[in-house]
Simulated assay, not measured.
Amino acid sequence: MQLSQAHLRTLQTCPRQYQYRYLDSLILPDATQLTETTAQKRGRDFHRLMQQHFQGLDISPILEAQPKLQPWFEAFQTMPPPMIEGQGEAEHVRSLGWQEFTLVGVYDYIIFGQGQAQILDWKTYAHPPAPETFTRHWQTRLYCYLLAATSRYSPSQISMTYWFAQGEKGANAYTFTYSEAIHQQIHQTLEQSLTQLRQWLQAYAQGQNLPQVPEAQRSKYCYECAFCERCQRCEPSASAVSTLDPFLAMFKDLGITR
């Protein structure tokens, strides 16, 4: 079973959503698919543009067909991220076997230097989140871990840089340094997470569902989830609440409470 950073992130957020998406292979509702396609298509196209750029291919056909990518590419040319010297490779793939699982990472760009390596990732968010968000992100943790575990580079020789196409000048790149201590922490976290997943999969094979988000965190995660109706955890609509108001008032007058 292959596990990417998206799989690990979903498992951490909501095991039940992981089940729906990756075990049950349920398709997201059409409205959600359209929203994601609209929001992410330009980002995917920009990644393709950057891949061809670093491979030395002509990117003018892409820019002519999608002129909205031009400002982002110009931003990269005028405010590129800090990059080490070395041999670069776009869309680099690494994997690591872990018992019955295979951890997989697809790197936007990676530079193999003399005594150091740098992972680069392109982001097209309109409003880049705080650096702390990426420190905890499974992409940062898994990509650095995989590189350290499958290469000659030690953890202290690895860094990861996020570059934001729409970031403001001076805040368009975040660089995180890796270390042996962080590497060991991630190893322990992976060990615990995969042990737990193994137990859930055994129960799933016996007909049990994976756990839902705890009730206390329902408002944080469930209301925006595409599967909230399937889990019966959607936020009541304003119209539904207003329709019930007269009945709730009547019950209150009669001294009836929930």
Rank of each mutant, 00 (worst) to 15 (best):
H53T: 10
T38H: 11
I59H: 08
S151Q: 03
P80N: 04
H7D: 07
R94K: 00
F112P: 00
Q12K: 10
S60Y: 07
T135P: 02
Q184I: 08
H92D: 00
P214R: 08
L63Y: 01
K123D: 04
Q157D: 12
P71Y: 07
E168T: 11
L120P: 06
P29C: 08
M50F: 06
D45T: 12
A117L: 07
I182G: 00
Q12V: 00
M83A: 06
T32H: 11
Q188K: 11
E36G: 06
R48G: 10
L120Y: 07
D30R: 10
Q77K: 03
Q184P: 04
E85W: 00
Q206D: 11
P155G: 06
F176V: 09
P128N: 09
Q40P: 07
G115W: 04
Q77E: 05
G88S: 04
A75P: 05
E89Q: 06
E235D: 13
F54Y: 12
C234F: 13
F46S: 10
T243F: 14
T257Y: 15
Q55L: 10
L147V: 08
S237A: 15
G170D: 06
R230L: 15
P128Y: 04
Q70H: 07
D121R: 05
E224G: 14
Y221T: 15
C231E: 08
Q139E: 12
P61M: 06
R152D: 14
L146A: 11
R16G: 01
Q114F: 05
F76D: 00
I27D: 11
N172W: 11
V104F: 07
E168F: 02
F73I: 08
G113D: 05
P61V: 01
